[in-house]
Simulated scan of single mutants.
Amino acid sequence: MKRVFVLVCVLFMMANTVYASEITWESAPGHHDQSVLLGPEIQSSKDIVQRNGKGEYLSSGMLEILNQSNGSIYICVDTFAHVNVDRIRHTVFLDQWDDRKQDWVQVDYWEFERTKEEEGGELSMMTDTITIKNVATNRYYRARGLHMVEIGDEIEGCATETHGVLITKD
């Protein structure tokens, strides 16, 4: 009976360790739930989170959303490290404003990843762009980003969030 108890305790501790090391958009430091709906004359929104703490690998995360005025959305996501890292990952979430709920609703997401091996041994920044065509127009959209860098077993992350931009088709 004592062995079973010890085994259960060890398994519980291992499960908690794995869970605690997982970084999500909600748990990453940065900007959360600060989006406002911008006026129709404003075509883009950008968010930057800089992390300059001693010993940190992640330098900054940047995210921009742009109304292309043709029923399309352009998004650019950047993740920067202070040093050469093993892997950079970022995820972009696209949210649409729901007038009835008076809240944001996630409509899509994209994941990107590169390793230093794929980049010839040097990896300290990563940029990706997305163009989403034929979206519902005269609606507000925002982007959220999760930026992560990895060295060995160490993972650091931050969260970005743009303001809501009205997507139009002129």
Rank of each mutant, 00 (worst) to 15 (best):
S45Q: 01
G120L: 00
G71M: 06
V135L: 02
Q68N: 15
E113K: 10
Q68I: 11
T160V: 03
K54I: 15
M148Y: 00
S72E: 12
M126I: 00
S45L: 00
R89S: 10
I155N: 03
H90V: 04
T131V: 15
C9Y: 10
R100G: 05
K101T: 00
E117W: 15
H90R: 02
W104H: 02
I65S: 00
V83P: 11
I42P: 09
K101N: 05
R87Q: 14
I23C: 03
D128E: 13
E117N: 12
G120I: 01
M62I: 05
M14V: 11
N52L: 15
D95Y: 06
S45E: 02
R114C: 03
I130H: 12
W104K: 02
S124G: 13
E118R: 08
H31R: 15
S27R: 09
L7V: 07
I48S: 04
L166V: 08
L11G: 15
T137D: 06
T91E: 11
E117F: 14
Q34V: 08
L11D: 07
V83R: 09
H32F: 07
L66H: 06
V6D: 11
F5K: 14
W104R: 02
E118F: 08
V6R: 15
V4C: 09
D103V: 01
L11K: 11
N138S: 12
D78I: 12
G53F: 07
R3Q: 15
R144A: 12
F80W: 13
L58F: 01
V105L: 03
A136E: 15
N16L: 13
W25R: 07
V107L: 02
F12C: 05
D98Y: 03
S35T: 14
M125E: 13
T127Q: 12
V6L: 14
G39M: 11
R100H: 10
H90P: 03
T79D: 01
E56K: 12
V36A: 04
L146K: 02
S124V: 01
H31S: 12
F93Q: 06
H82T: 08
N138E: 13
I65A: 00
N16V: 03
H90K: 05
R51E: 14
R114K: 13
E56W: 03
I65W: 01
C158A: 09
T17P: 05
D95Q: 01
W97L: 06
A81W: 00
D128N: 15
S45V: 00
V135C: 04
I132L: 13
V135Y: 02
V4G: 09
K46S: 12
V107Y: 02
E22A: 06
Y109G: 09
E119N: 12
R114L: 10
T17A: 15
F112I: 00
L66W: 05
H163C: 05
G53M: 11
E154I: 12
A159H: 05
V36H: 05
A28L: 01
F93G: 08
L7Y: 08
